[in-house]
Design a protein around this nucleic acid. Structure first.
Length: 272
DNA sequence: CCTAAGTCCTGAGTGC
DNA sequence: TGCACTCAGGACTTAG
């Protein structure tokens, strides 16, 4: 489910659900997702109050005095309030809270991740250490920064903005939407894009992510906020999933292909 | 059969 | 030939 807006939406939902809550017990129903969940995780979190719910890139971080529960949603990960009787296939982890509520982490494709980070070890965590800048950090994600990342590169611009070592949080949907709004062809070589276009691209990436967060993310298939509501940014998609349909700007037929290893839609006449 | 909100690894290619 | 780096493609997995 998750690009930055969806993860941020889940973060905000979990923050509301977990405010003032204490984890009584962690129940693992499967040991291995994308990676093996550390055996010590349940014991380290049992009895711990959740003091903050943060996001870094597409990762969720649940802070407790003993350390942090790190979670990546992969493609299909969800958190939900799961009262008795609402169990589902692919519920891999239950957080039993002291007040009797239960949160479920469900992830059918198991591309997600759960890990425990001891207090003070976050900077060195291998999944977090190599991450690029946050796109909503205006001081960090600048046209200068993106231009430096693009310089000399023949790689498609779409692959560059989806590279989590450069800028985090942009995935296959928002990359396509941002490139449409910036009038850039997804397969355009990053190093041959004029600076003015990169200025625009930085601006539209930030704007689209902000708008999507405001809309509660995008709901495709069964993405839900942690509180159970749907996002509605999917109604503002201009190209994603619309190959063969008319361009919303010029009415030319949108074309589909593979760019950066992922299905991609763009307008041949609006995007150069 | 096809496709899918994401990483992560391998191996081929490039340039010095 | 070697080395460092870049980049494309495959693998992982289940559901619709």
């Amino acid at each position: 489910m998750p690009e930055l807006p969806e993860v941020e939406t889940v973060r905000a939902g979990l923050e509301l659900l977990l405010a003032g809550a204490t984890i009584a017990r962690v129940e693992l129903r499967r040991r291995t997702l994308r990676a093996t969940i550390p055996a010590r995780l349940p014991a380290r979190l049992a009895g711990q109050p959740v003091v903050a719910v943060r996001r870094r890139a597409k990762y969720l971080l649940l802070d407790t005095p003993s350390g942090t529960l790190l979670c990546h949603l992969g493609m299909t990960g969800t958190w939900r309030l799961a009262p008795a009787g609402s169990e589902r296939d692919h519920d891999h982890c239950y957080l039993h809270l002291q007040d009797g509520r239960r949160l479920a982490f469900r992830d059918p494709r198991r591309f997600g991740l759960l890990d425990f980070i001891p207090l003070g070890a976050e900077q060195e965590h291998p999944r977090l250490a190599g991450l690029g800048v946050e796109p909503l950090d205006e001081a960090a994600f600048t046209a200068d920064y993106l231009a430096a990342a693009c310089r000399g590169r023949r790689q498609a611009i779409k692959a560059v903005i989806m590279d989590q070592a450069t800028v985090v949080g942009v995935g296959n949907i928002y990359a396509q939407e941002a490139l449409f709004r910036a009038a850039l062809r997804p397969q355009r070589a990053a190093g041959r894009i004029p600076r003015a276009a990169l200025v625009t691209l930085v601006t539209v990436i930030r704007a689209i992510l902000r708008a999507a967060i405001t809309a509660g993310g995008s709901t495709i298939n069964d993405f839900r906020q942690a509180g159970g509501a749907s996002g509605y940014f999917q109604h503002q998609f201009r190209v994603y999933g619309r190959a063969g349909q008319p361009c919303p700007t010029c009415a030319a037929t949108l074309v589909g292909g593979v760019v950066g290893g992922r299905g991609t839609t763009w307008c041949r006449s609006c995007q150069r």
